[in-house]
Nucleic acid binder design. Sequence first.
DNA 1: GAACTCTGTGCACAAGTGTTCACCGAATCG
DNA 2: CGATTCGGTGAACACTTGTGCACAGAGTTC
Lengths: 220, 220
Amino acid sequence: MSTSDSVHSPSPSSARLTRREQKERTRVALLDAALRLLERKSFSSLGLREVTREAGVTPTAFYRHFDSIEELGLVLIDDSFRTLRQMIRAARAEPRSPEHVIRSSVEILVRHVHEHRLHFRFIARERSSGLPAMRQAIRTEIRLFTSELATDLARFPYLDTWPTEDLGVVATLIVNTMVSTAEAIVDAPTDSREAEEEVIRHTEKQLLLIALGVSAWRRD
Amino acid sequence: MSTSDSVHSPSPSSARLTRREQKERTRVALLDAALRLLERKSFSSLGLREVTREAGVTPTAFYRHFDSIEELGLVLIDDSFRTLRQMIRAARAEPRSPEHVIRSSVEILVRHVHEHRLHFRFIARERSSGLPAMRQAIRTEIRLFTSELATDLARFPYLDTWPTEDLGVVATLIVNTMVSTAEAIVDAPTDSREAEEEVIRHTEKQLLLIALGVSAWRRD
DNA sequence: GAACTCTGTGCACAAGTGTTCACCGAATCG
DNA sequence: CGATTCGGTGAACACTTGTGCACAGAGTTC
């Protein structure tokens, strides 16, 4: 039990806190605790008391921050997708020489999955299992990402003449591949470097295959 | 509450039952009840009492059939994959003219998802969320399917010269696409015919794209 | 500095959970 | 037919859960 420190007795680093700071501190403590527990459990089996116990807070304190665990879950999804959007922005900012776009995209994905492992794990878990509200939120977020990718694709020469539907099909295929890759990395044991290298190699080949298919598409 | 019929008072169709029959009957009643509940809940939040209540049986009766709910879950996975293997056998038995292989494969997948909606839903849910034992079981089953597909691919002309690793990459890509499609269909509202038509059309295009990519692969 | 605000506490409660036990009645067996 | 087996019941247990209420004590405001 390492959670013996009460929230009331502040850590030695910060002598005294304003109320806002204090409240925010236990709020993130609750969110972190939940995320930590969600590494091993699914959200639907997550208990309010369980979270507060992990956070080192009484159950009743929970209600000062959230009306229910569902609400906390939605905040968690929001946070998770915030980091994912950061990733996408990073990927777009990258200087994109066409021949290295695949390698660098996969590299960025892998790095972000490692840096925000718990967030990705949580999304992967709840994507097809969670409460309807969560699944909906996740799905629309992924859909949004997909359509952004489609408009990005439309900027490439040759692809700019494609109908939007077909661009969407390609984008969906790419996103699905990326999602599978992310899930594979999250599920893989943390230490096995070579297993991950294999996943990366496979993903790059799959994306290359898709790219080849695209360039052969209307050549009949 | 339509579960008022006790298991003890046999349905009028079958006057008297042997003990084996009777036991098997409540066993499948438990499994069916669980599967029914799992359409709306995730397995980790499934309670023993909940299942027995839905099945119209006392909680203690459960232990006459399973040691725990986890065990019931594994049986459920087994059953689910039994139907999936049926599907694969059906797909392989189909006369496979190369130009229609995509259309017929997708058609078979869609039909089976509809006929065994609850099984597919269950697998989709627990694939990335369930207990470790379940996830492991599901993953190895999908992996097995993938490698079978890879050996099938190796029988095609032109592909028979490919290294097994690359065949595996292609097979994985195809299976991922199929899994995504199955999930989309299971999640879609049951009535919307046009939404499903769109999913089918997209899937076929994606598979065609992959096929094109494959045929362009070593032409550099 | 006094009055107030608010975040966290402690206690209580009803409801639900998994599991054990003795028991019952009908199918099975000698 | 009598004895036995066994799939079901019902009551009881020790817990855990979510939630409500009164209260404490530190931060805030006048």
